[in-house]
């Protein structure tokens, strides 16, 4: 039915406040594949990713990860997910490497993985300054460096290409490809076109009249 590292969404209804965003979402993402979510602003892409991350419970519909619903996973689900949202999730007063060390403390030794052979996003290559003094693109690179060290199998990326330069976009392509190759799964929402090396297994369009 639903194997290891497989995401299966059935009949999910998305609401933000009282507004209905999506009537019925059915989506299945296999191990080693990723789904690409597109849609106009306000169509519920971020809401979908937040629900998948376990921030709030869906009113209707079932989300299964590796055969179990999020409710059945309980607290253990938190170790399965890496989430990159609109906010970078890094502390502005810490340097890039201190941010990496802090994230390592948060996820614990089992959730942490040193990228091999070499990282796509190298925090030590960034200026050794508090992140509030870095550019938006550099801060995003810190955030992606944290993501790269995550051992979580399910990656939820909300507009990951924001403020990245050409090299950064290519590096993200490499990073995601490596994650999928290792048997991971990902859901990516983005307005910008993905690097051509990345071919999504599924494209989900939100906000279209059906």
């Amino acid at each position: 039915m639903c194997g290891q590292n497989m995401l299966d969404i059935e009949g999910l209804v998305l609401r933000r406040g009282r507004r209905l965003l999506a009537r019925r979402i059915d989506l299945r993402v296999d191990r080693g594949a990723f789904a690409y979510i597109v849609g106009p602003n306000g169509s519920g892409k971020s809401t979908l990713l937040r629900v998948l991350a376990g921030f709030g419970r869906p009113e209707e519909g079932v989300i299964r990860w590796s055969g179990r619903t999020i409710g059945e996973w309980g607290g253990a689900y938190r170790g399965e997910v890496a989430f990159l949202g609109h906010l970078e999730g890094i502390k502005p007063m810490l340097t890039p490497e201190e941010n990496l060390a802090y994230r390592r403390l948060l996820v614990g030794p089992t959730g942490w993985r040193v990228p091999t052979p070499s990282p796509f996003f190298d925090a030590s290559a960034l200026p050794d300054l508090p992140c509030q003094r870095l550019s938006a693109g550099q801060r995003r690179r810190v955030s992606l460096a944290c993501l790269e060290h995550s051992a979580a199998p399910l990656w939820l990326l909300d507009e990951p290409l924001t403020s990245l330069d050409h090299d950064g976009v290519a590096a993200l392509g490499g990073l995601l490809a490596r994650h999928l190759m290792a048997g991971g799964t990902a859901v990516v929402a983005s307005h910008q076109p993905l690097p051509p090396t990345l071919v999504p297994a599924t494209v989900l369009e939100l906000g279209t009249k059906r």
């Binding site: 991350a53 376990g54 921030f55 607290g75 253990a76 938190r78 170790g79 997910v81 890496a82 989430f83 949202g85 609109h86 906010l87 970078e88 999730g89 890094i90 502390k91 502005p92 994230r103 948060l106 996820v107 614990g108 089992t110 959730g111």
Partner: peptide, 19 residues
């Protein structure tokens, strides 16, 4: 909350109460 680290705190496998 403002810089998004709260999201990462909530996704930490450690008990949130302890954090």
């Amino acid at each position: 909350y403002d810089d998004g680290s709260l999201e990462q705190m909530l996704l930490s496998p450690r008990p949130l109460e302890l954090i």
